[in-house]
Structures are given as C-alpha cells and as structure tokens.
C-alpha cells in the first residue's frame, strides 16, 4: 500500500469535506449538525496530515 498517497488523499478529502459541510451548515442551519458534527473532518484532516508527514519522514529515513 502506498501510504503517502492514501494519507494525501485523506488530507485533501477531509479538508474539502470540512469546508463543504461547514458551508452547508452555515447556509442551512442544523441541516448537517442534526446528523453529525462536520468537525470530524477537521480531525481527520489533521490525522491525514500527520500520517502524510510520517510517511515523508520514513521515506527520507
């Protein structure tokens, strides 16, 4: 498995998903938060970012 590519996908997807769901929530209040909290994608973004960073370090090492 190419960890770097998966981490990169996770990072980008999470970031844009977070933007999307926060935007939807601002436009139509409670439409997203009645189902889940959009900030879970922010958490996944940082997880992805950390994973991506780890994969870069390991590659260099």
């Amino acid at each position: 498995m190419d960890r770097r590519s998966v981490a990169k996908t996770l990072t980008y997807t999470s970031f844009f998903s977070w933007l999307l769901f926060v935007g939807v929530e601002l436009a139509v209040t409670t439409s997203v938060t009645r189902v889940f909290s959009p900030h879970i994608f922010l958490l996944l973004f940082f997880v992805g970012l950390f994973w991506w960073y780890q994969s870069l370090i390991k590659k260099k090492g």
Binding site: S5, V6, T9, T13, S17, F21, S31, R34, V35, F41
Partner: peptide, 25 residues
C-alpha cells in the same frame, strides 16, 4: 489496495452528504 482505500476515503463524505440531504428532505 491503495486505489481501494482512496476510493473509500472519497466515497465516505459523498455518502454522508447524501445522508444529510435525505435527512433534510
């Protein structure tokens, strides 16, 4: 495996968006 995981990662927010829309409607 890489492609599979990437596809899954992209699909999850798409499905969640679908759930939000369905719930809202």
């Amino acid at each position: 495996m890489t492609k599979f995981l990437q596809t899954l990662i992209i699909l999850v927010p798409v499905m969640m968006l679908g759930a939000v829309v369905f719930n809202y409607l």
